[in-house]
């Protein structure tokens, strides 16, 4: 969906056609959910926060500045909503600090994709919330540094430094988890 197409949908919603909002939700729900889940580390809460963010965005559509990207505006709402859920949440999340992982290289020295995903999730979970979110936004591969800065409320330079340092920490965490050999896949 192009930016003008999104603007047309927004115009239609504001003109009294709320059902077309489903198209915007469908387009952005995965990223919105991913951002919320990286902050909250809890699927049920992330789903609720992402839904809340979409509802907030819908009710504030008239304030959306057409010069900005809808996705950036929406993800900022998702980010703030998830942060606010995090502050209120009384959940005690399962600690992964003491999780023991044993590295056992298979015959061909490669890890299955599902294992990679699991180890990556584990490494990500060991980072702090700000690093995790910045990295997710960065690797979702749709957003520029300026957009990431706008979503997270940081200066572009601060965002760049944070992402660089988070990438270093992620590499170190993965190294710890997989041991040096696994990184030479």
């Amino acid at each position: 969906m192009t930016i003008p197409a999104e603007h047309t949908i927004i115009d239609r919603i504001l003109a009294g056609e709320p059902s077309v909002y489903a198209e915007l939700v469908n387009k952005h729900k995965s990223y919105a959910f991913t951002i919320a889940n990286k902050i909250l580390q809890n699927r049920a809460e992330a789903e609720e926060a992402a839904q809340d963010a979409f509802i907030k965005a819908y009710h504030h559509l008239s304030t959306f500045n057409r010069e900005a990207k809808f996705s950036t505006w929406l993800y900022r709402i998702v980010f703030n909503t998830a942060i606010s859920y995090k502050r209120k949440s009384r959940h005690t999340f399962q600690s992964i600090e003491n999780t023991v992982l044993e590295y056992s290289p298979d015959g061909e020295g490669t890890l299955e994709r599902t294992d990679k995903r699991k180890y990556l999730a584990l490494a990500m979970a060991r980072l702090n919330e700000a690093d995790r979110t910045a990295l997710t936004l960065f690797y979702l591969d749709e957003l520029s540094l300026e957009e990431i800065a706008e979503i997270t409320g940081m200066q572009a330079n601060t965002a760049k430094v944070r992402i660089h340092r988070a990438r270093l920490r992620l590499a170190d965490e993965l190294k710890l988890i997989l041991k040096q050999e696994a990184l030479t896949l």
Binding site: K29, S30, Y31, F33, T34, N37, A46, E47, A50, R113, K116, R117, L120, T136, Y139, L140
Partner: peptide
């Protein structure tokens, strides 16, 4: 090689 995108 890994998509970070999660599906709700």
């Amino acid at each position: 090689k890994i998509s970070l995108e999660e599906i709700p």
